[in-house]
Amino acid sequence: MKSLLIAESRQGKVLGGSYELMAFAGELASDTVMFLVGSKEALPAYGGRLYLADAAEVGDYNPEAHRELILQVIAEENPEMVLFCHSSYGWDLAPRVASALGAAQVSEVVALRDGMPVVPVCNGKLRRQVQVATTRRVFTLQAGAFSPSAEPSGTPEVIKMAAPAPGRVEFCGYEQAAVGGVDLGKASVVVSAGRGIGKPENVKMVAELARALGGEYGASRPVVDAEWVEHNRQVGTTGQSVAPKLYVACGISGAIQHLAGMKKSEFIVAINTDRDAPIGEIADLLVVADLKQFVPLLTAKLQAR
């Protein structure tokens, strides 16, 4: 079997997910070739054949042109499997490629079971094993699900690709979220508020627990989207990554995008009314309780020590 790995680069840097594609292909003992819109100054550590288009000409985000280039590589290499990261780049591009190929697409693969891809369902509460009916298949892989066992190495054999005509979607540049304010990464304790807090007034009880534990408070995304807490306190893939000594998740279900930002914490306590909340999968301690009663009580007991 042969797999085409769609590597990713942003602002001249190869992104780490690219190596996870190699790890997945390795698990299937598949041959690989790689495609990247990037720069010859920053090549991935990869020992195989790399089809490279110049990001300066094509643009980091130019989905119709990227699709065109990928289809050229597929015509040349005839891979059975095309692998993307399940990232803002990959989930945007994969359906376009799968559609052009008439291939089945399976999104956010987390494992293989009986040789079939497994994907999460219902916010990670369930798993689905998928039977693909087409010979050619397109998978996107969940970030972190397949880790390279060794430090990636090698220098690719580069095949340069010419820029195709620009697509109808015009990329005008990047914007960085305003940084500054709190650096959650420095706190030894982070106590985060999730949607389970119910109303903005309850941010205060989470902040007070954080203070009683000598730490900072953070939040999950819905709490930030609702503007109950500033964005620079958001934990997760689209916020900050933290790895404190203690992480307390108050009313947070444990979606993969949240876990990605806190699962490296040394000790994780979750407070949740739902005994089956996916946060329980990674928590060292799951306290099944209503946070509105439990959090103030715990804070009071800590302060009384």
Partner: peptide
């Protein structure tokens, strides 16, 4: 269709994590 669900299942519990239930005063202690 180009694919179908072969099986739906619950993820294996990772184990190790402790679950506490009961009266909240005792839970806090």
């Amino acid at each position: 269709p180009r694919q179908e669900t072969a099986k739906l299942f619950f993820p294996e519990k990772r184990g190790g994590g402790e679950v506490l239930e009961g009266e909240i005063g005792e839970l806090a202690d």
